[in-house]
Simulated scan of single mutants.
Amino acid sequence: MAIATELRSEEEKASPHSQEKKRWILSDFDIGKPLGRGKFGHVYLAREKTSNHIVALKVLFKSQLKQSQVEHQLRREVEIQSHLRHPNILRLYGYFYDQTRVYLILEYATKGELYKELQRCKHFSERRSATYIASLASGLIYLHGKHVIHRDIKPENLLIGSQGELKIADFGWSVHTTNRRRTMCGTLDYLPPEMVEKTEHDYHVDIWSLGILCYEFLYGVPPFEAKEHSETYRR
């Protein structure tokens, strides 16, 4: 219950109907097809019955969050993402919970994961890569201006909207800070040297990931990818 209690105040700020202090419940939504699955739950297409607004509903199991000791990460994710307003950042409209689950009400990015699109195409043209990188850079400039570091920029955490625009998603590793950090997080192929060596880091870690993605968009694989983690570290 601790996670639900601490998040409650964020719900009122994040909800699109915050002026009514709306308390969402699962029956407020028609649940559609599954959109994806993660370590702690699943994401479904959903329709909010009153407004007919189409959203993505992320369902997280409290028992799994507690077992993996990531409740604080979820609190931070909600606190950060609920206040972000940028066309290249996925909106978090609100959240609610019941005895066993926490539900995040997210913007629905109609064209899905960039990762799957990259797999399908093998690599992108220079024009398409440039468009994606410019969009991503715009989102990161906004984030960094808000003193937010994402710390896990990779194709799996980027979604594509209805107009083909890029959306930064999954703020589980993000942090709001004006200080330098030491925590090692994210995915190895996209980590900068200072994170790998566990020295202090700041918002430049996202800029490194941007460069890695630029290479990957053009060539289809990240530049330091290897079969063994030790070889990726060495590269």
Score class of each variant (00 low, 15 high):
170 D>G: 09
188 L>R: 01
195 M>S: 03
170 D>S: 09
202 D>Q: 07
196 V>A: 14
212 I>K: 12
178 T>M: 08
208 W>D: 01
209 S>Q: 06
195 M>V: 08
171 F>E: 06
183 T>P: 02
168 I>N: 09
189 D>R: 00
178 T>K: 15
173 W>S: 15
184 M>D: 00
201 H>Q: 11
171 F>L: 12
178 T>H: 10
166 L>G: 09
190 Y>E: 06
202 D>T: 14
170 D>C: 10
190 Y>H: 09
172 G>L: 07
203 Y>T: 13
195 M>D: 00
193 P>I: 05
172 G>S: 09
184 M>F: 11
187 T>V: 02
187 T>S: 13
180 R>Q: 10
189 D>I: 00
191 L>M: 15
166 L>S: 10
171 F>Q: 07
209 S>A: 15
200 E>A: 15
173 W>V: 09
169 A>F: 11
205 V>K: 02
176 H>D: 04
176 H>R: 13
202 D>F: 12
186 G>W: 07
174 S>D: 01
205 V>N: 03
199 T>C: 14
173 W>T: 13
173 W>E: 06
202 D>E: 08
206 D>S: 10
191 L>K: 03
167 K>L: 15
187 T>W: 03
197 E>F: 13
178 T>I: 06
177 T>V: 00
177 T>Q: 03
188 L>H: 05
207 I>D: 04
168 I>E: 08
